[in-house]
Design a protein around this nucleic acid. Structure first.
Lengths: 160, 160
DNA sequence: TATTGTTATACTCTATAACTATA
DNA sequence: TATAGTTATAGAGTATAACAATA
């Protein structure tokens, strides 16, 4: 199991005999590491970056935000507090429900997430650079299959 | 970009047209989520589980542990403190260097990590269940290629 | 002097429980 | 009563800086 993705290079030999389980686990650590480094470039945590990413095409209430991020509403209060203090998001009262608060990106927030997303996309492109175009297409297809099946299972669970 | 891996099921349609970047990002979130859930089953965090995983076949010093986990040594002090308090790891003085401290798994720690790893392997196997044996082999091969190339790049950086 | 590890401190992130305001 | 959001509180995880013991 892939608990040490950053082992020294003398482990490269071991990586060439990776099982499916180890390979996917290590890949997830590598990709999460890329996200972390890109977020850190802008002095953001992964969760702050993810908050901004969620807000790119949405203007949810605090409650919806909690559901989207899988966090308790009180955690989202703090998350949005810190982002707001940095001028990345703003709160606005909801016209439809005077208890509710709508959260949206500021100009700065939009700029941050766009730059971070671009850098991350570059990381993935670099990672995929060793594959031929055909291999990349094959990989993308297989990954899509996995995600579609996984999402469908999640959907069934949700409505069961 | 995949900042919302847990979007509601009406996003499944969108997932069928995933780009390579989005697909890999979402896959990493799905896998990390599996790790989190398996760790939580044993009341552990991902980093605590990873600590135990690293110790399965090693008995490193605090310093080596910090390098393996990519953390500051002071962070590792706290991490090991909490794991030791729960009886999962133990500290022992190094015979070779009286400044150094060796960290190792206890019986309990070994049992915990073995169970968590087994559950996680099952999750991945289930995830891969929608693919044919040939597709699984293809995927594993491509993932290995990516990781080997990535590790090699890391190695070059380390020795540059 | 340099290195190993811990301590002191501060901040982010997270959850639970209690609270206010609105529905 | 129920829901939306905040506050109070507690704990994990992380880093920086200062420190003690050893090399």
């Amino acid at each position: 199991m892939a608990f040490s993705p950053d082992d020294p290079p003398d482990d490269v030999g071991a990586r060439q005999r990776l099982t499916e389980v180890d390979g996917l686990a290590q890949l997830s650590f590598v990709i999460q590491g890329m996200l972390e480094r890109r977020a850190a470039e802008h002095d953001l945590s992964v969760i702050q970056t993810r908050l901004l990413g969620v807000l790119r095409d949405r203007q949810p209430t605090m409650n919806e935000l909690a559901r989207l991020l899988g966090l308790d509403k009180s955690s989202v209060t703090g998350l949005v507090d810190r982002a707001e203090r940095r001028g990345l998001v703003r709160r606005a009262p909801s016209a439809a429900d005077r208890r509710a608060v709508l959260v949206s990106l500021t100009e700065d927030g939009h700029a941050f997430v766009t730059r971070a997303a671009g850098g991350f996309a570059g990381d993935i492109t670099t990672l995929l650079g060793v594959l031929s175009p055909g291999e990349r297409a094959t990989l993308a297809g297989l990954v899509s299959q996995l995600l579609v099946a996984h999402a469908a299972k999640g959907g069934i669970d949700l409505f069961a």
